[in-house]
Design a protein around this nucleic acid. Structure first.
Lengths: 178, 178
DNA sequence: GGGCACATGTAAGCTGTTACATGATTAA
DNA sequence: TTAATCATGTAACAGCTTACATGTGCCC
């Protein structure tokens, strides 16, 4: 019962869309999956090395000296499908804001208000980001068959952020007064 | 720029409500903060040892031989306040379901439907759990000044789960048909 | 006496981050 | 030419989980 390496899913998934270098892979993950996923170089390169050794991906010479462009093999495509079908293992939640709110009786109301205001500002930034991604996605002719799936993840982010804005507004009134 | 040990906040916070043993501390965190926080024994005991060495908590003999009941000192109370006011550092998101949806073009629609159905079932379980916690909290006379803060965290969970149920329903239709 | 919940800890190991080291390519 | 970006990797470390080892107290 070995645990599934989540990073491998992200790496194989990205390469299923287009072959690319490790550097660009990480950049695409940051820019495109950024609102629900994250990888660091320290994860991406070892993962690429492992997947190459397992025959899931192959490296080709890139346009630049000493850059390697990775592509999925058939085995890699099969492995990706296998991993995608596995039910996500429930991750241990850790919400640092809710932790602070829970112990809020130890703080003056203004400190709570500050925490909530900061959070709301972050949410509004996120929402602006989603709007931008959505516009871009709806215009991008390359998205093709992926578009509906990508839009679904954007919707998830938007709905979550909107419901959290509602919660923040209500909670600020409840806990810190109008 | 040392990072804040989040576990310390949970430990100090729990002890600010009532002195208790490490074992019970972890149990309370699991049962009461479970929907937004998690600690393992391997975190709790070292954290207690460190906080004791720093003078934030003191140990008293418990009712049982070789059990130690920890209580906040004044320094610990001050440290807790300091930690609670720090803005939560944004954690790197990792949503395993959205990762699978994003690469959904690699899967047959039925596999997507399974993933979404499983997720919806989990959400409904969560909602039932929240309802139970809410009933319990509203009846508990011990909650006192904490009740409003604790209810706020329950509301956060409820709203989040409800908006995700909405998303799941919509997304299932969009991606897998009616 | 047997089983369960309470209770305390440690050690191995995995995941993931951060900082570092190095160099190529491109655009101003 | 110089700064930014592209590109690859490693090493140290922090954080956290899991499994293990050990023992107490209570109830049936």
């Amino acid at each position: 019962m070995t645990r599934v390496r989540q990073t491998d899913i992200a790496v194989l998934g990205a390469l299923s869309i287009e072959p690319m270098t490790g550097y660009r892979l990480r950049k695409e993950i940051t820019e495109t999956l950024g609102h629900f996923w994250h990888e660091s170089f320290g994860q991406v390169y070892p993962s690429l090395a492992r997947l190459e050794a397992e025959g899931c991906i192959v490296a080709m010479d890139g346009p630049k000296t000493s850059s390697r462009v990775f592509a999925l093999t058939e085995a890699g495509q099969a492995e990706l499908r296998r991993l995608l079908e596995l039910p996500p293992e429930p991750q241990q939640p850790r919400n640092a804001l809710l932790l602070r709110i829970f112990f809020g009786a130890n703080l003056p109301p203004e400190a709570i208000a500050d925490l909530l205001d900061d959070y709301e500002a972050q949410l509004r930034e996120k929402l602006a980001g989603f709007a931008a991604i959505r516009r871009q996605l709806e215009a991008d002719p390359l998205a093709g068959e992926h578009r509906r799936y990508w839009l679904a993840t954007v919707s998830a982010g938007e709905l979550a952020a909107l419901s959290q804005v509602e919660w923040v507004t209500r909670t600020r009134t409840d806990l810190c007064g109008p």
